[in-house]
Design a protein around this nucleic acid. Sequence first.
DNA 1: GAAATATGATTAACATGTTAAATGGTTCTC
DNA 2: GAGAACCATTTAACATGTTAATCATATTTC
Lengths: 153, 153
Amino acid sequence: MREFSRSLPMSLLRAREAVMRQFRPSLRDHSLTEQQWRILRALASVDTIEVTELARVAFLLGPSLSRILRDLEARHLIERRVAKADQRRGLVSISAKGVKLIETVAPSSEAIYAAITRRYGARKLRELQEMLHELEDAASRAGEGDGEAGESE
Amino acid sequence: MREFSRSLPMSLLRAREAVMRQFRPSLRDHSLTEQQWRILRALASVDTIEVTELARVAFLLGPSLSRILRDLEARHLIERRVAKADQRRGLVSISAKGVKLIETVAPSSEAIYAAITRRYGARKLRELQEMLHELEDAASRAGEGDGEAGESE
DNA sequence: GAAATATGATTAACATGTTAAATGGTTCTC
DNA sequence: GAGAACCATTTAACATGTTAATCATATTTC
């Protein structure tokens, strides 16, 4: 069997962890977890967003998102209401306090990202992201046919 | 700020999740989590290993490992004892039952890996792993100096 | 060689990941 | 238009991630 420590999931996990380890202390200083930060950033780029769409964008499962929104709301970092047209749907937006928090944290976050980019190389980083996206595609489709020709959809 | 969904940690997370999603059903059929499987595979490649070293190899934090070993031991998939020379250290090895389980699960696991490799390309996969390893290095060192020249250690 | 310090492992406490089930609201169907 | 089927979200239950604290054993220091 393939040497364990060289498996693809392990390589991805280790790389991601090395990156995230740089960010966590700064987030921690503001009592934010990685996932809470993801949500705030996603909210900052829109006016209002539905819960389901937010889950998709922030790449979180419903149950996780549900808990986190409850906590962020209690901290007054976000605001919620229900859609008039469809009472099942929840609408979420970032609060003024949430915007302020982002503006406080973002500089150090950007600096860390810049440091990694500088060390790794900006072009190489773009190439890596492209390869990761292609891997995501390939993995998602694995187990469909077994060839190259993509039976689309 | 950088468009959120294109951040490096997100790309790594999404790619890894796409890969792991393929493996989880098979593991689930044998009541194994991803982390339990990592541990069993790591144990299969050695005779005996200390808990600390196992944590390093399987890339798990101590507390997680502690809990998982307790469960695996209760399922008789591993065996434990303490080191004679240093009573603080725990020694772990896989049991006959654990080996049998691995032999049951491995074929489907290998097939999935092969399918992904076929779709993505074996060479490209090696290149990706190399780039991930370099990223791990770069990220780990980010925040030391700010230049290229590596003040080693 | 006893107290202080350090180390390996576990436990504690809280947050998220994951799957299943429940809750509430909406739409379809007859 | 009442009941079935469906959909969005939350709750539940259990496993892991993460940091801090604890416990037992080793090592160091005087």
